[in-house]
Lab assay of single mutants.
Amino acid sequence: GLEHMADEEKLPPGWEKRMSRSSGRVYYFNHITNASQWERPSG
């Protein structure tokens, strides 16, 4: 619920959580730099 939404908002600017269609794993994508990574971004 609300706790999940608050957790999402802690991601650094530009980052969003996405799911890989090929593997079904969650990864993180930065739409500003077009960077993507499996680890949760910090800072």
Rank of each mutant, 00 (worst) to 15 (best):
Y27G: 01
E9M: 07
W15R: 02
P41R: 01
P12I: 01
S36M: 15
S22Q: 11
S36H: 09
W15K: 02
V26I: 12
L2S: 11
M19A: 09
Y28H: 00
H4E: 11
P13E: 08
K17L: 08
Y27R: 01
P12N: 00
H4R: 03
D7E: 12
S22H: 15
P13I: 07
L11D: 10
Y28K: 00
T33V: 03
G43T: 11
W38P: 05
R18T: 03
G1A: 12
S42H: 10
K10H: 10
N34H: 14
R18V: 06
W15L: 00
Y28G: 00
R18G: 02
S22R: 14
N30S: 05
F29D: 00
V26L: 07
S23D: 09
M19E: 10
E39M: 09
Y27F: 12
E39V: 07
A6G: 10
Y27K: 00
A35Y: 10
G1Y: 11
E39P: 05
M19N: 08
E16T: 07
T33K: 03
I32K: 08
S42D: 09
R25I: 05
R21V: 15
G1K: 12
Y28R: 00
G1N: 11
M5Y: 10
I32W: 08
L11M: 06
L2M: 13
P12K: 01
N34T: 06
A35K: 15
I32T: 08
D7F: 10
R21H: 15
A6V: 13
A35D: 06
G14R: 02
D7T: 12
E8V: 09
Q37K: 03
P41M: 02
G14A: 04
W15G: 00
G14N: 06
S42F: 09
G43E: 10
V26H: 08
M5V: 12
S22N: 12
K10L: 13
A35W: 13
V26D: 04
G43N: 12
G1V: 11
D7A: 09
N34M: 12
K10A: 15
W15P: 00
E9N: 07
F29E: 01
L2C: 06
K10Q: 12
S36L: 13
R21N: 15
G24P: 03
H31K: 11
F29V: 05
T33G: 02
E16H: 06
A35L: 13
D7V: 09
R25D: 03
G14T: 01
E3L: 11
H4P: 13
G1W: 12
W15A: 00
G24C: 03
E9P: 08
G1F: 11
V26E: 09
E3T: 13
T33E: 04
R40I: 07
Q37P: 00
G14H: 08
D7W: 10
W38K: 05
P41W: 01
N30V: 02
M5L: 13
E8R: 07
S23W: 07
G24W: 04
R18L: 06
I32H: 09
E16Q: 06
G14I: 01
R21W: 15
H4Y: 11
E9V: 07
L2T: 10
K10V: 11
G43Q: 10
N30T: 00
R18M: 05
W15E: 00
G14Q: 04
S23I: 04
V26A: 07
S36A: 13
P13V: 08
R40K: 10
Q37C: 05
V26N: 04
N30C: 01
T33M: 04
Y27Q: 00
A35E: 14
W38V: 05
D7R: 04
G1M: 13
L11T: 02
K17M: 09
E16W: 03
F29Q: 01
A6Y: 12
K17W: 03
G43I: 13
L2I: 13
K10R: 11
Y27S: 02
P13Y: 13
S22L: 14
E3Y: 04
S36R: 14
L2H: 13
N30W: 00
A35P: 01
R18I: 05
G1E: 13
Y28D: 00
F29R: 04
S22I: 12
L2A: 12
K10N: 13
R40Q: 05
H4D: 14
I32Q: 08
L11A: 01
G43A: 13
K10E: 15
Q37W: 02
Y27T: 02
F29T: 03
Y28I: 00
N30Q: 02
W38N: 04
S23V: 04
E39H: 14
L2W: 14
N30L: 02
Y28P: 00
A6N: 11
Y27V: 02
K10F: 10
G24T: 05
I32N: 08
A6P: 12
P13D: 08
D7N: 10
S42A: 09
L11C: 02
G14M: 04
E3D: 11
M19C: 14
H4S: 10
S42T: 14
Y28F: 08
F29K: 03
G14W: 05
N34L: 12
R21P: 15
G24E: 04
T33P: 01
H4C: 13
N30G: 01
E8Y: 07
K17N: 02
M19R: 14
I32V: 09
E39F: 08
S36P: 02
K10W: 14
R40H: 10
Y28M: 00
E16D: 03
T33Q: 03
W15Q: 00
K10S: 11
G43M: 14
H31N: 09
R21S: 15
P12V: 01
S23A: 07
S23C: 06
F29P: 00
K17I: 07
E16K: 04
I32S: 06
L2D: 13
R25N: 05
E16N: 03
G14S: 03
E8F: 06
R21I: 15
H31V: 15
E3G: 12
R18H: 06
G14V: 01
E3H: 12
E9G: 08
A35H: 14
P13A: 09
S23N: 12
W15I: 00
H31R: 11
S36W: 15
E3V: 14
K17G: 02
M19Q: 12
N34R: 14
K17D: 01
W15F: 02
R25S: 04
N34A: 07
P41I: 02
W15S: 01
A6F: 12
G14F: 07
L2V: 12
R18S: 03
S22E: 14
M5G: 10
W38Y: 09
S23P: 06
S42L: 10
V26Q: 05
K17H: 03
E39I: 07
R21T: 15
G1P: 11
S23Q: 10
G14L: 02
A6I: 13
G43H: 11
H31A: 12
A35S: 10
Y27L: 03
M5Q: 13
P41T: 00
M5I: 14
L11H: 01
G43K: 10
Y28W: 05
H31S: 10
R18D: 01
R40M: 07
S23H: 11
M19K: 14
F29Y: 14
P41Y: 01
V26K: 03
M5W: 13
E16M: 04
H4A: 13
N34Y: 11
N30Y: 03
E9H: 08
I32L: 12
S36V: 15
S42M: 10
L11G: 00
G1L: 13
M19I: 15
G1T: 14
E9D: 10
N34W: 09
E39Q: 10
R18A: 03
W15M: 00
E3M: 10
E9Q: 09
Y27N: 00
H4F: 11
E39T: 09
E8K: 09
W38Q: 04
K17T: 06
N34E: 05
S22K: 15
R40V: 06
T33W: 04
W38F: 08
N34Q: 14
W38S: 05
T33F: 06
M19G: 04
R40S: 05
K10Y: 10
G43V: 13
D7Y: 09
A6T: 12
R40Y: 08
P12H: 01
R40G: 01
E16P: 00
W38H: 05
G24K: 08
W15V: 01
R21Q: 15
H31T: 15
F29S: 01
N34V: 03
H31D: 03
P41V: 01
A6D: 13
D7Q: 10
I32A: 06
Y28Q: 00
N34S: 09
N34K: 15
A35V: 15
F29W: 10
L11Q: 04
Y27P: 00
H4V: 12
H4L: 11
P41K: 02
Y27C: 03
H31Y: 14
S23G: 07
E8T: 10
M19D: 05
L11Y: 03
E39A: 09
N30H: 05
R25H: 06
E16R: 04
K17Y: 04
R21D: 15
